[in-house]
Design a protein around this nucleic acid. Structure first.
Length: 578
RNA sequence: CGGGGUGUGGCGCAGUCGGUAGCGCGCGGCGUUUGGGACGCUGAGGUCGAAGGUUCGAGUCCUUUCACCCCGACCA
């Protein structure tokens, strides 16, 4: 490609309000342009990267037996009513009516369609297992898009779906995807970790996320370097203290003025915060009052609490709602409350004689104990794991990292197949629901995620596997330096003929402009043709990642460049552990 | 949805006390220049996000509203 004719230009500066690095660089390098909130055009340069990413995805999906197909973005709402998601999913599902007044939706994902197709195409156990996938536009009216391509509203996602006879089959399809995803992300040059994750609105029994390390990530993951435990903070467990075997002491009310927070209370009574019980109040989506109780030194994890209560959403309760169940904000405890759904964290179950609120201002209760003084509707893990907490498996200290969710894999089970009648007959003629899994990767997000991990002060450092071009060819010399131009033109043609993808900077620009743009765009190899080097019969070759150039003879330059590209590709595979 | 911020030419910004809309970059033309974002001359390009109001007069003051960005909530 001759840069003099390339659609889309580089920018010297990114818009001032753009903050994260991948967003800045993808705008500056001319990969993307914004159209509206969470809506981006991919310019030719960015589109090349996305295509290469998608080709890698296709190769790896095909390698595990995936069959590519295509399903519509627009779905009849009835399909989503059948699965129940029409009712369950919030406003991120775009709903509209067509001209005949039929309810329609824009697909967030395609479980319903796959299940519907399975119901017509799959009849017999002989036809299973299957893996189908597609690369399709999805629309999610996100409450807040952010970070350029990291979180957008309209995006392309590779979705694959496995159809299996049973749980054992699903396990196999799931591990195949695990392997394919591992290879995809290695090949795109990502540093990542696989963590256990929340199943969220998808339902299902197990989910893992492929998380790429980045300070601009939206998720926090907890990692144990000692035993390899890694989990999204949303579902992360941690090593708990052993249950206390202290004898319960008589409950006693004490005056505790101005102790509306755990810290004030602990200071006033001169006890550690771990000897207190904290009450946190929510209103569930169903209208229930959710009364969460946790040891004073721990924090509630709302994802875990949602799972524990079965509530799709939780909002903090108001002072009036708290009073209505007989509790008191700042001095709350489950002792004596009515009409609340009480969820107690394991930490409180395993402790004895905690200090809890007396449900009246200025008073607390000493020696409160679960079972004797109040009952719980649920006792489970609702505590948030933090950096420094012990690993749940080996009890070594865990550390926290921010990360971007690059992909995830899900065991769905039979939720969708049952709802949409996707069943098969086994060898005995018995009908069973197909067991499903679903697996997603956003190609645009992956582009942004790779940039997040590969850049320097000059610009992007693409891995050759997904770089827009293999080579940036820079002609140094004015328009009237016909000899240099002729040599650069000839090299451009020769490289193209040799199958090299070349971005040829043939613009009438000063060398500094060209070098800076080449660095910004970040192709892995830069070749400079100049009269200075031509006089010595040489070409300059510089890796984007190197600080100093090398020189090769003009004779055999194409071979030398091909060899260097091979070396780069080989080194990347080694670095990726492939 | 809550909090914060920003809207002035393609990009980055200035615009004081309300008085003829400016600067740098970029863009067109001409000339010089050519190994890390050159220089001179000369041009083109703006309903100052929108609407309403105050005023003799509004980029500037008031009201409303829209868009975008950031934090949070939310989120396969």
């Amino acid at each position: 490609m001759r840069m003099s004719h390339m659609f889309g230009r580089t920018l010297r500066a990114a818009p001032a309000d753009v903050e994260i690095i991948s967003h800045q660089l993808s705008l500056r390098a001319g990969l993307i342009r914004p159209l509206g909130a969470g809506l981006f055009s991919l310019l030719p340069l960015g589109w090349r990267v996305v295509n290469k990413i998608e080709d890698i995805i296709r190769e790896e999906m095909d390698a595990i037996g995936g069959q590519e197909m295509m399903m519509p973005v627009v779905h009849p709402a009835d399909l989503w009513r059948q699965s129940g998601r029409y009712q369950v999913v919030g406003p991120e599902l775009a709903r509209w009516k067509d001209r005949s007044d039929r309810d329609m939706v824009l697909a967030l994902t395609h479980e319903e369609v796959v299940a519907q197709l399975a119901s017509t195409e799959i009849n017999s156990y002989r036809q299973l297992p299957q893996i189908v996938y597609h690369l399709q536009t999805k629309f999610r009216d996100e409450p807040r898009s952010r970070g350029g391509l990291i979180r957008v509203r309209e995006f392309t996602m590779k979705d694959s779906y496995s159809l299996d006879l049973d749980e054992a089959g699903l396990e196999e399809s799931y591990s195949k995807h695990w392997i394919a995803y591992d290879r995809i992300f290695r090949r795109t040059g990502l540093r990542f970790i696989v963590v256990t994750a929340d199943v969220g609105m998808m339902g299902g029994s197990k989910s893992e996320e492929f998380m790429a390390f980045s300070p601009n990530g939206e998720d926090t993951i907890l990692i144990c370097d000692s035993c390899g435990y890694a989990s999204n903070q949303e579902v992360a467990r941690f090593g708990r203290d052993a249950a206390s075997d202290d004898a319960p002491l008589p409950m006693e009310e004490v005056e505790t003025p101005n102790t509306t927070t755990i810290q004030l209370l602990a200071d006033y009574l001169k006890i550690p915060t771990s000897k207190t019980a904290k009450a946190v109040f929510y209103m569930g989506e169903s209208g229930r009052f959710i009364f969460a109780v946790i040891r004073g030194d721990l924090e509630i994890n709302e994802t875990k609490l949602r799972t524990a209560t079965g509530e799709g959403g939780l909002v903090p309760a108001t002072v009036e709602q708290i009073k209505a169940v007989g509790a008191e904000a700042g001095y709350g405890s489950p002792v004596g409350v009515k009409g609340a759904f009480i969820v107690v964290d394991e930490s409180v179950r395993d402790a004895r004689n905690l200090v809890a609120g007396a449900n009246k201002p200025g008073y607390h209760l000493l020696n409160v104990n679960l079972g004797r003084d109040y009952q719980a509707d649920v006792v489970t893990d609702i505590a948030s794991a933090q950096a420094g907490y012990p690993c749940p498996d080996c009890r070594e200290s865990m550390r926290a990292e921010r990360a971007i969710e690059a992909g995830n894999i899900f065991k769905l089970g039979t939720r969708y197949s049952e709802a949409l009648g996707a069943t098969y007959l086994d060898a005995e003629g018995q009908e069973h629901p197909v067991v499903m899994g679903s697996y997603g990767i956003g190609s645009g997000r992956l582009l942004a995620t790779v940039i997040e991990q590969r850049y320097d002060d000059k610009g992007i450092l693409w891995p050759i596997a997904i770089a827009p071009y293999h080579v940036s060819l820079v002609a140094i010399g004015s328009a009237d330096d016909t000899e240099t131009i002729a040599q650069a033109d000839a090299l451009y043609e020769a490289l193209k003929a040799a199958g090299v993808e070349v971005l040829y900077d043939d613009r009438d620009e000063r060398p500094g402009v060209k070098f800076n743009d080449a660095d910004l765009i970040g192709n892995p190899l830069r070749i400079a043709v100049s009269s200075r080097n031509l006089a010595k019969g040489q070409l300059e070759i510089k890796r984007r990642s190197a600080s100093e150039p090398e020189f090769v003879s003009m004779d055999g330059a194409v071979e030398a460049i091909l060899a260097e590209l091979d070396v780069i590709a080989a080194e990347e595979l080694v670095a990726a552990g492939l």
